[in-house]
């Protein structure tokens, strides 16, 4: 089973655990000469492609590295401003690496809250009585499965769209949560989970789930 990531959301909509299992890396490296055929802009402290989709570089991708030097936000590792460097024709040819941006911690927390509200709205908009919220969301690139416990904790798993059998994994996840987070005397309820045993067991469960389809 290909599981991309796991989220645990508390009853107030706060993210209390997030783990990326195997998120596919989308990166394209290319050498450019001046002038750059792509239009770049600064968005959310990142250098983003705004126009000129080509050779696998898509609109929305960010600059990850220039000449092998990793980019942090809008600056290179050595403190140079990326936009300034790319607008300077003496520095060309440049080797630039583009890729799909990873979710930042802030975005993860924001999307967890967003899912929490979408879940609640889907209950209200139900055309039949006594419906729960979203249990499975299907898109062309991934599948999101969610199970809510009686106490309001939501376990969310993102996986490959062709996968089945996430239900048993969600059950297993709840078991691990009950055994290694809730039973840990140093864990306070509804707070982020920082328990070593929980991490270890979750990873084991993920490895096991990965093996199921291989076998």
């Amino acid at each position: 089973m290909t599981i991309y990531s796991v989220y645990i959301i508390n009853k107030g909509g706060g993210l209390i655990y997030q783990y990326d299992n195997n998120v596919p890396k989308i990166e394209v490296e290319k050498t450019f000469s001046y002038p750059l055929e792509l239009t770049l802009k600064i968005h959310d402290e990142k250098v983003v492609v705004a126009f000129g989709q080509r050779d696998g570089i898509k609109v929305g991708h960010v600059v990850l590295a220039v000449n092998g030097l990793p980019v942090n936000g809008r600056q290179l590792e050595d403190g140079q401003d990326v936009m300034e460097l790319l607008n300077n024709d003496d520095k060309y040819p440049l080797n630039i690496k583009f890729g799909r941006p990873k979710l930042s911690k802030n975005e993860e927390i924001m999307f967890a809250g967003m899912f929490h509200s979408l879940f609640a709205i889907s209950v209200q908009l139900s055309p039949v009585p006594h419906s729960t919220g979203i249990q499975m969301l299907e898109t062309d690139t991934f599948k999101l499965c969610c199970s809510q416990t009686l106490t309001g904790i939501k376990f969310v798993v993102l996986s490959d769209p062709r996968q089945v059998g996430q239900d048993s994994f969600l059950k297993k996840l709840y078991e691990i949560y009950a055994d290694y987070a809730l039973k840990n005397p140093f864990y306070s309820i509804d707070m982020p989970i920082n328990c070593e045993l929980f991490d270890v067991n979750l990873q084991q469960a993920l490895e096991q789930a990965d093996k199921i389809t291989v076998g």
């Binding site: 990531s5 006594h130 419906s131 249990q135 969301l137 898109t139």
Partner: peptide
């Protein structure tokens, strides 16, 4: 996790 062409096509709850 990867670039998409289309958005989501369906979601389900336990009733609809």
């Amino acid at each position: 996790p990867v670039d998409q062409k289309e958005s989501f096509h369906s979601y389900r709850t336990n009733k609809y």
